[in-house]
Amino acid sequence: MLVLHQVHKTFSTPQGELPVLNGIDLTLDQGESLALMGESGSGKSTLLHLAAGLDVPDQGHISIEGQRLSSLEEPARARLRRQHLGLVFQQFHLVPSLNVIDNLRLQARLAQREDAEWTAHLLARLGLAGREEYFPEQLSGGQQQRLAIGRALAVRPSLLLADEPTGNLDEQSADTVLALLLELVAETRCALLMVTHSARVAAPLNRLVRLHLGRLEDPRP
């Protein structure tokens, strides 16, 4: 599903070159869920962005469903993203001009893969039924994040990438959102790569890797 091979990434800063990723090798299979942990600034989000094709590595290659991202031009990467990937951000990134239902089906419609029945099912599962006409700012933080998860899953992606999806929520909301996320992932059988710094959030996932000094460490024996 997702393969990262010897991925390197360095950023230029006013203080000089800053290597963030030093030869990352990672594989994620369909239906598998992986927690990516690490301290702040360790490069977790960078790795997630590379996996999503939002950025390109300096060395190494990344493949999604057998397609090498480095061989794709930007429009093709964008197509891959809207058809096969689901993205969930810590800061939701909902579209404020669209109401709940339009936000929910936005990516599916962009990918021309809208499934009304699935959308309705998602809406109910997200606990947002009856709030279709609400706009994002009229929802609570937990509701906004559930909507963001729904939007990512509405396209039935093969890979879901989540960047600190509960980082902006209180503990109770975080638990609810996480439980829902995992249930829906299981329902769709998509692979999940989740960036988090919370061991509690990482615990229910199949695998856990830690990013330290630009390299991946598997903390479990």
């Binding site: 429009p75 964008a78 058809q83 993205l87 990134h93 579209v95 404020p96 936005l106 962009l110």
Partner: peptide, 14 residues
């Protein structure tokens, strides 16, 4: 920021 959100959802930059 608005445009960047759409970009993340797979709308090409062009």
């Amino acid at each position: 920021r608005q445009l960047a959100s759409l970009w993340a959802l797979g709308v090409p930059r062009k």
